[in-house]
Design a protein around this nucleic acid. Structure first.
Length: 507
DNA sequence: CTAGGGTTAG
């Protein structure tokens, strides 16, 4: 048994008991464990890491706001491939500049379409106007238009946005030389989701299935997010389980795909139900199923069940893998069990599953949440000794840990070190540093850091502004807070969210 | 390449 080594015990029974000791400490952590159930499901579709995007693409996407990017990774990938295939036909003789000219054309066309859609209303023939544009429709153009609508959607204009989006969707679908892709459907469904036009989404799903479009995990996510009540969610799930066109790659079967989506969306209740359905239909769990279930138990803080499941997994002949170890490190980190973690890391090496930067980051993050900064520093150094070089995420985790612990000078040291090591700070890093500066009462420097990040091409997101403004307000620096808001709104960003900036209350 | 590491939300 793998954990017997972990805890230096000869019997797996006893060692599980040992691991179970984690439970009482686990709840004593200083930061909230997980309170994600209330998070807007529309804004949390996994995805997130948008750093690996090439420059041409990034330039094209610059104006998209952060929140959209973070919920839409598969469409980004789609865009890149679309772009490549469209470019490849004339790529041979043209250099990089053709890239930007193609992108410029699409962007320009999209703006013309949006301009026409804006004029939609009585006495204006939108369809005729669109026809008059004589556009060369492409998947990219359709995407660009729908994205344009999606990013400008607000509470006040959502119904109209949905109407216009759908008008364009129908119109473009009728044009020759172009047909919709699964992703165009996803975009219009996303617009309907934002507009809370859930019935329309269901009709689109019917249409997709009717026309034989493959549905994917993204389709599933879009729909499951619209289900307020569990009953409706179960219907969606049943529908996807039965569907013949459900493309559940890269998973081996649809149950794993669904379970994975649910864990990403924090629908934990349904996870149990789907797992039962899966067993009823005669599928046995594989290592992925177990890892998803473990993740769900861990995120719900159900450590008792977590360990039972781990035990069952072992009994069914599954050895923990890369992901399982990562989950165990989550548990050990947050439970402030550095010694057990050290044993686990050694065990991983013994079974030639060498810990990676991911594992160390997980552990360090957990330990920092438990307030054990010494252990964080220990594993950070240990990691480097083992030849794992810290990256942005890892540095950011360390910085955040020090900031939360009120040791700003240590955070600053880490920040300087990461820059000298050539690691580029990102929004997460700057947000932590700005929070740290505010906590240390260095408001001038905090405001300077906002300017600094912009200068270095790192776009502040709403949370960065929110952090800074809240601290300034709380410190009674109202005029400076107002300056930041003005700055934010002048850049045309997040104006509709101004009222959402949190007011920090002392307690 | 992976399913896999990081912001505050009440």
């Amino acid at each position: 048994m793998f954990w017997s080594v972990v805890v230096r015990s000869s019997s797996s029974r006893r060692s599980i008991g040992f691991v179970n000791q984690i439970v009482p400490c686990f709840f004593g952590v200083s930061r909230t464990i997980y309170s994600s159930s209330s998070r807007s499901c529309l804004a949390s579709n996994g995805g997130g890491g948008g750093d690996g995007v090439d420059n041409g693409f990034r330039a094209f996407e610059d104006y998209l706001n952060e929140s959209w990017k973070s919920c839409n990774f598969d469409e980004e990938i789609e865009l890149k491939t679309t772009w490549r295939s469209q470019n490849s036909t004339f790529q041979q003789k043209q250099n990089v500049s053709s890239r930007s000219s193609f992108i410029d054309t699409v962007r320009n066309d999209a703006n013309r379409v949006l301009e026409i859609l804006r004029q939609d209303g009585p006495g204006f023939d939108t369809k005729a106007a669109l026809d008059d544009l004589k556009l060369r429709l492409s998947g990219l153009l359709v995407r660009q238009v729908l994205l344009g609508i999606l990013t400008s959607i607000s509470f006040a204009n959502k119904k109209r946005s949905a109407k216009l989006g759908f008008k364009f969707f129908v119109w473009s679908g009728q044009q020759e030389n172009y047909s919709h892709t699964t992703n165009s459907y996803h975009l219009i469904m996303k617009i309907f989701a934002e507009a809370e036009e859930f019935k329309a989404m269901w009709r689109l799903l019917d249409e997709m299935i009717h026309k034989g479009y493959p549905t994917s995990a993204r389709t599933f996510n879009l729909l499951i997010c619209t289900c307020g009540e569990a009953g409706l969610a179960k219907k969606v799930i049943e529908r996807f389980i039965k569907s013949k066109t459900f493309n559940y790659r890269p998973f081996k079967h649809c149950f794993n795909a669904i379970l994975h989506s649910l864990v990403v969306l924090h629908h934990y209740k349904l996870i149990e139900w789907v797992y039962q359905q899966m067993l009823v239909e005669g599928h046995s769990p594989d290592i992925l199923t177990y890892n998803i279930l473990l993740c769900s138990k861990y995120r719900q803080g159900k450590l008792e069940q977590f360990h039972r499941l781990l035990d069952e997994m072992g009994q069914n002949g599954f050895s923990p893998d890369f992901h399982t170890y990562n989950l165990l490190l989550h548990v050990l980190g947050k439970g402030d069990k550095p010694l057990a973690a050290l044993n686990l890391l050694n065990h991983m090496k013994e079974v030639s599953c060498d810990p990676t930067i991911l594992h160390f980051t997980t552990l360090i993050d957990g330990l920092s949440r438990a307030g054990n900064l010494d252990a964080c520093k220990y594993f950070f150094d240990e990691m480097i000794k083992q030849g794992c070089m810290p990256d942005v995420v890892c540095y950011t985790v360390m910085i955040t840990g020090y900031v939360e612990a009120g040791e700003f000078h240590m955070a600053q040291e880490m920040f300087d070190e990461m820059i000298s090591e050539g690691q580029l700070p990102n929004v997460f890093t700057y947000n932590s540093m700005i929070r740290g500066l505010c906590m240390a009462g260095k408001f001038e420097e905090a405001c300077l850091m906002l300017k600094e990040m912009e200068r270095r091409g790192c776009n502040p997101n709403f949370l960065v502004y929110s952090t800074l403004v809240s601290y300034l307000r709380n410190a009674g620096k109202l005029s400076q807070a107002h300056e930041i808001i003005k700055d934010m709104v002048e850049k045309g960003k997040y104006a509709h969210l101004v009222s959402k900036i949190k007011r920090y209350r002392r307690c």
